[in-house]
Simulated scan of single mutants.
Amino acid sequence: MQRYKIDDMSCGHCVSTVEKAIRGIDPAAKVNADLGTREVSVETTADSSTIVQALKTAGYDSLRL
């Protein structure tokens, strides 16, 4: 499982955008976003650099935890 901190994720629309970005590179990914901590957990076969880039393209800077 990979975890990311996304400080700019602050609403349901943000969560939807983040999930869409991750599923755009791995449609089978399991994504769990927590707005309280602004963290996302991802179960995927994609490597973390690909996920970070997909999030950046969607407009979100992220930090792998």
Rank of each mutant, 00 (worst) to 15 (best):
M1K: 14
Q2A: 08
Q2W: 15
Q2F: 15
R3S: 12
Y4V: 07
Y4K: 08
Y4S: 02
K5R: 14
I6N: 04
D7C: 03
D8I: 08
M9E: 02
S10K: 11
C11I: 07
C11R: 09
G12E: 05
G12L: 05
G12V: 07
G12Y: 07
G12F: 07
G12M: 07
H13R: 07
H13V: 11
C14G: 01
C14T: 03
V15K: 15
T17Y: 04
V18G: 00
E19F: 10
E19N: 14
K20S: 12
A21F: 04
A21M: 05
A21N: 03
R23M: 04
R23Q: 14
R23S: 01
R23V: 01
R23H: 04
R23W: 02
R23P: 00
G24N: 01
D26N: 06
D26W: 03
D26M: 02
D26A: 01
D26I: 03
P27S: 13
A28N: 12
A28F: 05
A29C: 03
A29T: 04
A29R: 02
K30I: 09
K30N: 12
K30E: 15
K30S: 12
K30W: 06
V31T: 04
N32T: 12
N32D: 12
A33H: 05
A33M: 05
D34F: 06
D34A: 06
L35H: 07
L35C: 05
L35F: 08
G36P: 08
G36C: 08
T37G: 04
T37P: 04
T37Y: 07
T37W: 10
R38F: 03
V40S: 00
V40K: 00
V40D: 00
S41M: 11
S41H: 11
S41P: 06
V42R: 00
V42F: 01
E43I: 08
E43T: 12
T44I: 06
T44A: 01
T44D: 03
T44V: 08
T44C: 00
T45W: 02
A46P: 02
A46I: 05
A46G: 03
D47N: 10
D47P: 02
S48C: 06
S49Q: 13
T50C: 07
T50R: 15
I51P: 01
V52Q: 12
Q53S: 14
Q53V: 08
Q53D: 14
A54L: 09
A54R: 05
L55A: 01
L55P: 01
L55K: 02
K56P: 03
K56V: 11
T57K: 14
T57N: 13
A58L: 04
A58G: 03
G59T: 09
G59Q: 08
G59N: 08
Y60Q: 10
Y60C: 09
Y60D: 06
Y60N: 09
D61M: 11
D61S: 14
D61T: 13
S62V: 11
S62D: 04
S62L: 02
L63E: 10
L63I: 12
R64E: 15
L65Y: 09
L65A: 10
L65D: 08
L65N: 06
